[in-house]
Design a protein around this nucleic acid. Structure first.
Length: 468
RNA sequence: GAUCCCAUCGUCUAGCCCGGUCAGGACACUGGCCUUUCACGCCGGCGACACGGGUUCAAAUCCCGUUGGGAUCGCCA
């Protein structure tokens, strides 16, 4: 029987989740959920300088928002330091790693030199040749040291889940550090130990770490562990076609949440970033994505983050929502922006939601789309200006006032009858009737259905507006 | 410089493994329909196999090369 799939999401808590990481997390989560597997949540906080508690909270919040859950963790690497140190000692005993006394400055200088000479920068092996006595002497003298892994293999083959077989030439790979002098492990070391000990079977991650995968494979071997299955996902490009960068606009998950994107849309969009479903339909429910996702259908080439399409997709999800759901979403933003919103009766508020729904792709756009219900715009459009000074306009408005006098309360279904009466009284119909009414009431030539405008504005407000 | 990855409409992609369909879909753009306006929706249009060789009756698909883009080479992750 196949071993149960166990994946992990292991961000470093150095800020809010980036969409690229979110996509990676999603793919891992998907293969776990579709196979009754497990998800481990681990925080790679070995970089003391950049890690923060706030970041951890914001990551959890983002994950919850998207609907990712985990079965194990969160683990903090900073709490497992003893483990890494112990493993480093074991490797030293087996001869897989050795103490390196070179200082950061020396190494930096050497590296620059190698670059200048056009050579591949790699460790020159200075400390490999130290005798036991020399090592002991330096340790006694208190010279700080790191542990370096001795690369003996000439090449490594990786069978990548998305890229197939890859052969790495290790001739130019120098011995690399696994433990820093301060006792903290380097990424390559702690991931391997944690992934192995936590029983991770599949690792889907960005292709930016593809080049360090052979190092990790060597570490697995040296430590006596079986390596998991790796799958390297392509990078995500920004609108310029270059890797997505902060200057391209929003890149953190939280910024999308704050901009009014709904999690279903984000989830769907992220899934399509490199993966494509079998059929023609791209709007997919979470359950559909879970059941149909396959790592085999993941693209090898980079995907560009298409903000336009995300927005469209968000609109698709918004349009599918009930009026009540839309009302819940727009209430905070509209009550803040328009003082009149809160005092509206519930059925009027719902009418606003109904009117706004098909016209927005982003909840934030409801401010603009609902404006008509709270403010009359100045008539600026040339054609509107022209119409509003016509004889038709005066006649329609006068008739409208007359008809309105017979009403006290306006119900949603009254609009038809009212306009019918205005038509009879004014003798105007079609555009001359409806467009003039619209302009008189809203100041604009386009916007929500008159039905909703009549209902939400009510008699008094309409009278006020047409007299302006 | 070295190692590795990638290459189909403007963008994301299907098709490639097992050569033969007008190279299919989505966003964007655009024409029309629906609608008392706009929006939504529906129907259509525009638009791509990076280049060069080879194999073959036939190549987006198989092979070789070229070019272009990207990642990495760290005591960051």
């Amino acid at each position: 029987m196949e071993k149960k799939i166990r994946v992990r999401f292991a961000p470093s808590p150095t800020g809010s989740i980036h969409v690229g990481n979110a996509r990676t997390a999603l793919f891992n989560w998907l293969i776990a959920r579709q196979s009754n597997g497990e998800m481990v949540f681990r925080l790679e906080d070995t970089d003391v300088e950049r890690s923060s508690l706030e970041s951890i909270e914001s990551i959890k919040k983002d994950m919850n928002w998207l609907g990712f859950d985990w079965d194990d963790g969160p683990y903090l690497q900073s709490e497992r330091l003893e483990l890494y140190r112990q493993k480093a000692k074991e490797l030293e005993e087996s001869g897989a790693v050795y103490k390196c006394f070179c200082s950061a400055e020396e190494l930096e200088a050497k590296r620059e030199n190698q670059m200048k000479e056009g050579k591949t920068p790699m460790y020159d092996g200075t400390c490999t040749h130290l005798t036991k006595e020399e090592v002991q002497a330096k340790v006694d003298a208190g010279v700080p040291f790191s542990y370096r892994f001795k690369v003996t293999e000439k090449s490594i083959t990786l069978n990548d889940l998305v890229r197939g077989e890859i052969l790495f030439d290790l001739k130019e790979t120098g011995d690399f550090v696994v433990m820093r002098p301060n006792g903290y492990p380097v990424y390559n070391f702690s991931v391997v130990i944690d992934d192995a000990l936590m029983g991770i079977t599949h690792i889907l991650r960005g292709e930016d770490i593809l080049p360090s995968t052979p190092k990790q494979i060597m570490l697995y071997k040296a430590l006596g562990f079986d390596a998991p299955q790796f799958g390297h996902l392509s990078m995500i490009n920004g609108p310029t076609g270059r890797p997505l960068h902060k200057r391209d606009g929003a890149t953190s998950l939280s910024s999308f949440r704050e901009a009014g994107y709904v999690p279903e849309a984000m989830f769907n969009f992220l899934a399509l970033l490199g993966w494509s479903p079998k059929g023609d339909n791209e709007i997919l429910e979470k359950e559909d994505i879970i059941s149909s996702f396959s790592i085999k259908d993941v693209s090898k080439s980079p995907a560009q983050f298409n903000y336009e399409k995300l927005k469209w997709m968000n609109g698709q999800y918004l349009h599918k929502k009930s009026d009540e759901e839309i009302l819940d979403l727009i209430t905070p933003i509209l009550s803040e922006r328009y003082s009149g919103f809160s005092s509206l009766a519930d059925d009027r508020k719902l009418a606003v939601a109904k009117a706004v729904k098909p016209r927005v792709e982003l909840i934030s756009e409801s401010v603009e789309q609902a404006r008509v219900f709270f403010e009359k715009a100045e008539i600026t459009e040339a054609e509107a200006v022209e119409m509003s000074s016509s004889e038709d306009y005066r006649v329609v408005v006068d008739s409208f006032k007359t008809v309105l006098a017979n009403y006290s309360e306006i119900r949603l279904e009254d609009q038809k009858a009212i306009t019918k009466e205005v038509q009879k009284l004014s003798g105007r119909k079609g555009k001359a009737l409806f467009m003039n009414l619209r302009i008189a009431l809203t100041g604009e030539m386009h916007g929500a259905d008159l039905e909703y405008i009549f209902f939400v504005l009510g008699k008094d407000e309409m009278l006020k507006r047409v007299s302006q």
